[in-house]
């Protein structure tokens, strides 16, 4: 356990000289405090883990830019914040990309996205070939009887996003079944 403030710097210096054990120990300690840093800023555990892995890889790639005469933590946090901002930027722009113009789905507002004349079991083979998220939504809706709202909560999505994904899945299925 690291109990001296300069230990990170010492470990990094040893790592830069090729000490693998020191490097593993340093990354382990770093991952602990970065986990807390990320957990305070992100909602889901899987996001925290994914981003933490990315940050550790970035630290590995940029390790030659660290000068052991300087404190270690500001250097690490600079990389962590950079990757976090990158992640959030990509996350929000992805959400914007997936947002659909209301006009595009206006015609489907009257249609119920939770009901269909075809039974789930009769087309389950085709459903399995759908993208993972869409297949999961259809399975929850039609086999397990969840509402769009419940699925949204379960999958960490917006209700409207669930409905849109379901709508897209129906479109794909319709195309496949018409062939």
């Amino acid at each position: 356990m690291i109990d001296r403030t300069d230990s990170f710097e010492v470990l990094m210096r040893q790592s830069q000289n090729g000490d693998q054990q020191a490097y593993a120990s340093l990354l382990k300690q770093t991952s602990l405090f970065l986990h807390t840093f990320l957990a305070n800023r992100l909602r889901y555990t899987n996001e925290v883990d994914d981003l933490l892995q990315e940050i550790l890889i970035s630290i590995h790639k940029a390790r030659h830019t660290y000068d052991s005469n300087r404190p270690y933590k500001p250097w690490v946090y600079a990389i962590a914040k950079f990757r976090l901002q990158d992640y959030l930027r990509a996350h929000y722009s992805d959400q914007l990309r997936q947002a659909i113009d209301l006009e595009d789905i206006e015609e489907n507002f009257q249609e119920s996205v939770t009901e269909t004349a075809i039974s789930f079991e009769s087309i389950s083979g085709e459903i399995k070939k759908l993208p993972e998220k869409q297949a999961a939504i259809l399975q929850l809706m039609h086999q397990e009887g969840y509402t769009a709202k419940e699925i949204a909560e379960k999958m960490g999505m917006n209700e409207s996003a669930v409905k849109v994904a379901a709508h897209r899945a129906y479109k794909l299925l319709r195309k496949k079944l018409e062939k």
Partner: peptide, 8 residues
């Protein structure tokens, strides 16, 4: 990562 060549 630790098994990688870490001397830089």
């Amino acid at each position: 990562l630790a098994q990688d060549e870490i001397r830089v």
